[in-house]
Write a protein that binds this DNA or RNA. Structure first.
Lengths: 213, 213
DNA sequence: TGATTGTCGAGACTGTTAGTCTTGTCAACC
DNA sequence: GGTTGACAAGACTAACAGTCTCGACAATCA
């Protein structure tokens, strides 16, 4: 985000390219690192902008010069991490295995201790911060459509009924994930991932005994 | 909650240690009503204690004399409403129909406009208020065990595999519900309720009685 | 070199809100 | 009539998001 500045070379609009001191890339990184660090530490307790600025050795205004709100900083820090995690979900050729891998990866990534508290904290902040809530909506939307795509592939291969409600399946996966992740009343381990994946494909595609005509 | 006080008439328990003015039941109700009213109005925007007190025509201290925190008031107001809603889920004798009814009732109750914003607001506040989060945990736990019971009945009747993961099924239902309810990216209507119920029992139990039209 | 422009760190300031404390009043019981 | 404790009103404290100000400094231009 926010690299709308500093067209060193040619600005077609105006004659003057850029005068004055340039933005400090190091400060940008320091803020992101500080946010991620604090996010990883804090288990649930909200992370304050003052703390981020102080940890980064930066003025508060500098934070607000790069990001529009606290939520934006937090989400940026989180995705900085999460995007490294999600990576690619391989196409194994079979829906069941694809789905298992996807869910397992999701569960694992979210529970790596550093990511876990970050994700939890951001989710909590999003509940109160409409700006962040909006950013989170795109964040989750991205994940949902990745899963949706995976399911579409499976359906095209005939591994799901033609009239299967893919959106519902997607939400069953992420619903269980977030519900357990935020409330913490049940496990999100490999066994659950496999059971969940199997349940979702079994309804329409039998592993052995055909269940439905 | 909190009716441990003030038996207007005669306390059979010997000498009353209580002197001084008695607590005002009307104020108690007024606070609850005000909270529910504001909760129903506010769509997402947090409800403040000042607003509740002002609306109820009551001093802030009076609120805190009856409840330990803002969250407690809100949840009390919400359950005051929700308990009237949830009521009883009839035993129709067939898991599929029981489950459909349960899910549909849940979806419907949560989306009645007055309840919807209340539930949403309380959920949002719970994300920040650890005290309220705790109360919410028991709140959700209660609903989960009601559904778990329903599923157990079905399993005993042989309508679910003996090794089915009932907790996972429960969390698929409530996971989808909360996920869609809070993010609002997908519908929570009758069609979804039926599809979800069918998916959850179909994996292990063939469609028995003809219910579809 | 010096002027101009815009970023920097530091921190004061504003506005909001949860929760506490204070004050003077009023109701219940002795 | 005196004691006690709930009452309404509202001042007060402590956090915190976000804005504003200031003096320092860096990049560019004249």
């Amino acid at each position: 985000m926010s690299d709308t500045d500093d067209p060193q070379a040619d600005d077609p609009q105006a004659a003057r390219p850029h005068t004055g001191r340039r933005r400090n890339e190091a400060a940008h990184r320091a803020i992101l690192d500080a946010a991620l660090h604090l996010l990883a530490e804090s288990d649930g307790t909200p992370v304050t902008i003052d703390a981020i600025a102080r940890t980064a050795g930066v003025g508060k205004q500098t934070v607000y010069r790069w990001w529009p709100s606290k939520g934006a900083v937090l989400l940026d820090a989180l995705t900085d991490r999460a995007d490294r995690d999600v990576s690619d979900h391989p196409d194994t050729g079979a829906l069941r295995t694809d789905l298992r891998a996807f869910i397992e990866t999701t569960f694992d990534a979210a529970q790596r201790s550093t990511t876990a508290s970050a994700l939890r904290t951001v989710a909590r902040e999003a509940a109160r911060d409409p700006h962040l809530a909006d950013l989170m909506r795109t964040f989750t939307e991205t994940r949902r459509s990745a899963l949706h795509e995976l399911l579409t592939r499976g359906r095209e291969r005939g591994e799901l009924a033609g009239d299967a409600d893919l959106d519902l399946i997607v939400d069953q996966v992420y619903g269980v994930f977030w519900y357990r992740f935020l409330l913490g009343h049940g496990p999100l381990d490999t066994a659950v991932a496999e059971r969940l994946a199997d349940t979702l494909v079994t309804g329409n595609d039998a592993p052995g005994p055909a269940t439905r005509s």
